[in-house]
């Protein structure tokens, strides 16, 4: 070993200035364009719409499958007549109420669960009992208890949101590193302040995932519930709109109603949740 190192001469190099060697260059325009998420997603939607339209034309029976253009026309007509926005608003109001109550309850349950052994057992027992239970299966019961109206809708909504969200929140809390917990306690944070200042932001990726799942569950449950028992207190929502139009064989309106459900889903996912993620977990480097 000593021999081999002695065999070669040592040397030093004075580093000359680099001159105007470019140290970085821009990514090409095409690549930058392709990095825009909305552009890629719009492309996917356009392709889907084209496939749909072609399939409808080939099939040629607009009672069974109206095309994209026909649905778009029905949708615009529905918006124009004011019927669709009213239905959407009725559904959304109920949805948001149920969602917020579910969120609040999930927060209370998980806070209990991180602070006491009893809370932990309570949460794990309740979630394993109720999470597999379909919300719709509770609807007959809810109708008995709360009558034909908003009350029973909110009840099933809360049920569908609560457990999914609580599970995600809790697993997020468990994932918070010991170092971060100790740092928080070091600064004298305790109880609710500890949860608020340390656990919630640190578990935000899981909480956001739970919020998304909860939102999807809530939408599903609401539309299904409205389809099953129709109008509540004389004012039906989107599910009722779909159900009614199916009965009258206005298939294009049925599709317009479904499109409204999908559009709201896309909007909430891409505007609300994507924005939330962009300004929080992505910005903080907690999620790619």
């Amino acid at each position: 070993m000593t021999q081999s190192s002695a065999r070669r001469q040592e040397y030093e190099i004075e580093l000359p200035p680099l001159g105007d060697l470019p140290l970085h260059r821009d990514v090409s325009f095409g690549q930058r364009l392709w990095q825009q998420g909305w552009l890629r997603k719009t492309l996917i939607l356009v392709v889907l719409a084209v496939v749909w339209e072609v399939a409808a034309r080939v099939q040629g029976n607009d009672l069974l499958l109206p095309g994209f253009l026909q649905t778009a026309k029905a949708f615009i007509a529905g918006i124009g007549s004011g019927e669709l926005p009213v239905k959407v608003w009725v559904s959304l109001k109920v949805l948001i109420k149920g969602y917020l109550i579910g969120l609040l309850l999930a927060f209370v349950l998980t806070t209990l669960a991180v602070s006491t052994q009893f809370g932990r057992d309570l949460l794990s027992t309740l979630t394993s009992m109720f999470n597999p239970l379909p919300a719709i299966a509770l609807l007959p019961l809810a109708l008995l208890w709360f009558g034909l109206g908003e009350g029973s809708l909110i009840f099933v909504l809360v049920h569908s949101v609560l457990w999914a969200l609580a599970l995600n929140m809790y697993s997020g809390f468990l994932g918070v590193s010991d170092t971060l917990r100790m740092a928080g306690r070091n600064y004298g944070l305790k109880g609710l302040r500890f949860v608020g200042y340390i656990l919630i932001p640190a578990a935000l990726p899981s909480i956001l995932a739970g919020l998304k799942i909860g939102w999807a569950f809530a939408w599903r449950t609401l539309i299904a519930a409205e389809l099953v028992f129709g109008a509540s207190s004389g004012q039906g929502g989107l599910g009722w709109y779909i159900f009614q139009n199916r009965n009258e064989l206005y298939t294009d309106n049925v599709f317009a109603g479904l499109a409204a459900v999908i559009l709201i889903g896309l909007l909430v996912e891409n505007l609300v949740f994507a924005t939330l993620e962009r300004v929080t977990v992505k910005r903080w480097g907690m999620q790619r």
């Binding site: 590193s177 170092t179 971060l180 100790m182 740092a183 070091n186 004298g188 932001p201 640190a202 907690m286």
Partner: peptide
């Protein structure tokens, strides 16, 4: 308590948010 501040080894001692 805040009269004894700990500097940990782990990098995740800084809240990333």
């Amino acid at each position: 308590g805040p009269d004894r501040i700990v500097v940990f080894q782990e990098f995740d001692q800084l809240p990333p948010w």
